[in-house]
Write a protein that binds this DNA or RNA. Structure first.
Length: 571
RNA sequence: GCCCCUGUAGCUCAGCGGAUAGAGCGUUGCCCUCCGGAGGCAGAGGCACAGGUUCGAUUCCUGUCAGGGGCACCA
């Protein structure tokens, strides 16, 4: 289907060229034309402000420019009228015939409604969730998961070939700690004398899930691992966690195509190659403390073995960063740079990273690393989600995986269901802090936008169930019998393409959630008013209306699928 | 102290430099014998503050104030 703002913009650009050729406008390069949907009915359907913007460039009054443009405007089937308003707005009104035709077009496109050619089949990659396998998926992590997955769905709709990737951090010190923690629980499960570290021990994972895993492990392997080091425990817990995380994500409709193991960067040695490359370019030095260290930092570093520092201050950072610790093991940053280098080398046309705000600084350092390697970090777009705070029983609380205090996605799915989670975590712009009130989501579920939107779909389905039972069909419907009320809804449906475009180009997946609610808001009053099966509705009108509701059903199904929500046919 | 994000209705939030700033919840009043009422209609109620850029600023820039997050040889 056409993206109407683009179509209108094209008309205006043609008109400007024609007006220039005719001498009605002076010569100047034809600029990009911004078209926006009108906010009020008396301002048409779409508005252009180009005449106001051109005033200086053309050296004419905005209204005169608008008149010159309108006079040279080519005809188009979708335009019924053009008006100049106020200081120089050009307002377009869509033709009724065109809007009625769109009903058939919507029905024909069905689940591919508004599949755009913006991506033209180019390869896009979205990396999201990428939570550490040290505990179950938390609700805080889920925000990025939903943003990423919805972004992927929108990119598909926009015509990209999309890959969803999860960077699996199964390496590093945390995994050693996790393995050691499991060993303690394992020994405990076998009844061996062992002291369990207390809550203040930063090297011990308190989570109860480790007790369960340990019992299973003890059952499977008996005493065989009593004298083993952390490795078999790490391997065991990693596999278990991986399965658990995948299952949890699948419950809210998130399935990744690629799981990239951090471990593989160690196995292939690619992180050391990155270090060598950075060293060759002069960004690495060996020292106990960084070059600009304060007296306090120097005192802290006294007696330490040298570490490998990355001179990020060359890129504007506050201080240099350690890539290899004095014990010879890398920090998280080195494999992270290697991972992003690998990603760029895989040749995607578009890459999106969905991160939590707490990773903002870390990502900045990765960008420095990519720049230092001579690559362009701007190729990777970042959606930086602000933190989610949780309120339960009217009080805020914070989770911590290590202390074993968390709220898991699983628990939340059990409580409120996948659809409510998807909608509520999606319906907020990424830059705003999200307050998730568990009680409110449960309590208010009857007034939830989730059900408001789904009910629109349910109502459409209901009509068709009943129509079928009465032997009514919409075959050969005469759409000209529809009123402006129904046409207003079709106009709203046509905005879906524009919303998909904006969401994709601005990396703002939340836009589809607000659009869905607006669409339902236009629908429900119409449903109330436009009856199909009522006895007083003439048969031919009923047929036309049934056709209309078929298009509405397609639209709601499409928008629900784009948000990764279910499409229940009855409530 | 430095960096990032955010201040829009009582609450939770939309708002792509344009013409009278929108929803939902809550609240006040009303409607519905009718395809499932998880509905509809109407009312009250708002851009933190001060400068700047612009024909035009809720939107961009600077500052102030307020809130959140980040500032490890953790990941």
């Amino acid at each position: 289907m056409k993206l109407l703002p683009h179509e209108h913009a094209r008309l205006i650009q043609q008109a400007i060229r024609a007006a220039q050729a005719a001498g009605a406008l002076p010569a100047f390069p034809v600029p990009a034309v911004d078209i926006q949907p009108s906010k009020r009915a008396d301002q048409g359907d779409y508005a252009a402000t180009i005449a106001l913007q051109l005033a200086k460039l053309a050296g004419q009054k905005p209204r005169a420019i608008a008149e010159a443009i309108v006079q040279h405007l080519p005809a188009a089937d979708f335009v019924a009228g053009v008006e100049i308003a106020g200081p120089g707005f050009i307002n377009f009104t869509l033709s009724r015939a065109y809007l009625l035709q769109q009903i058939e077009a919507i029905i024909a496109e069905d689940d591919t409604l508004f599949t755009l050619d913006l991506g033209q089949g180019r390869r896009a990659q979205v990396e999201f969730v990428s939570a550490n396998p040290t505990g179950p998926i938390t609700i805080g992590r889920s925000r990025g998961g939903i943003a990423g997955d919805t972004m992927a769905r929108l990119l598909s709709a926009a015509g990209y070939s999309v890959e969803r990737e999860y960077y699996f951090n199964n390496a590093g010190n945390q995994m050693v700690m996790l393995g050691n923690s499991l060993k303690v629980r394992y020994l405990q499960a076998l009844g061996r004398p062992v002291t369990v570290p207390d809550k203040d021990d930063a090297t011990f994972y308190q989570g109860e899930y480790l007790i369960d895993f340990a019992r299973q492990l003890a059952h499977e392997r008996g005493e065989a691992l009593v004298d083993a080091d952390w490795k078999p425990f790490k391997e065991y817990v990693e596999v278990k966690m991986f399965e658990w995380i995948k299952e949890s994500l699948a419950r809210i409709g998130i399935v990744h195509d690629v799981f990239f193991n951090e471990d593989s960067l160690y196995q292939e040695g690619s992180l050391w190659a990155v270090l060598a490359a950075l060293k060759e370019k002069g960004y690495i030095y060996s020292a106990a403390e960084w070059e600009g260290a304060t007296e306090a930092e120097k005192a802290k570093a006294a007696g330490k073995q040298p570490a490998q520092w990355f001179r990020t201050t060359a890129f504007g950072d506050d201080k240099d960063r350690v890539l290899v610790k004095s014990d010879g093991t890398p920090t998280y940053t080195l494999p992270d740079i290697a991972y992003h280098k690998n990603k760029i080398e895989r040749g995607f046309d578009l890459m999106i990273n969905v991160l939590g705000a707490d990773h903002g600084t870390q990502y900045k350092i990765v960008q420095y690393g990519i720049s230092a390697l001579g690559m362009d970090p701007a190729k990777i777009h970042v959606i930086l989600n602000q933190m989610v705070s949780f309120v339960r029983d009217g009080r805020p609380f914070k989770g911590s995986t290590r202390r074993g205090v968390f709220d898991t996605l699983d628990e939340l799915v059990d409580e409120v269901g996948a659809d409510a989670i998807r909608y509520h975590l999606l319906a907020r712009s990424p830059g705003t802090h999200l307050e998730f009130d568990m009680d409110a989501v449960v309590k208010q579920s009857n007034d939830n936008p989730v059900y408001y939107i789904q009910n629109a779909y349910v109502r459409c389905c209901g009509i068709f169930r009943e129509a079928e039972a009465r032997g009514l069909t919409d075959d050969g419907a005469d759409l000209s019998l529809l009123s402006d009320t129904e046409i207003a809804f079709i106009r709203k449906v046509l905005e879906m393409g524009e919303v998909i475009e904006t969401a994709v180009t601005h990396f703002e997946p939340h836009r589809i959630a607000f659009y869905a609610q607006e669409l339902a808001g236009v629908f429900h009053p119409i449903y109330d008013q436009v009856r199909v099966l009522h006895t007083e509705v003439p048969a031919d009108v009923a047929k036309a209306r049934l056709r209309f509701y078929r298009a509405a059903r397609v639209a709601f199904r499409r928008v629900l699928l784009l948000m990764g929500m279910s499409t229940p046919e009855r409530m």
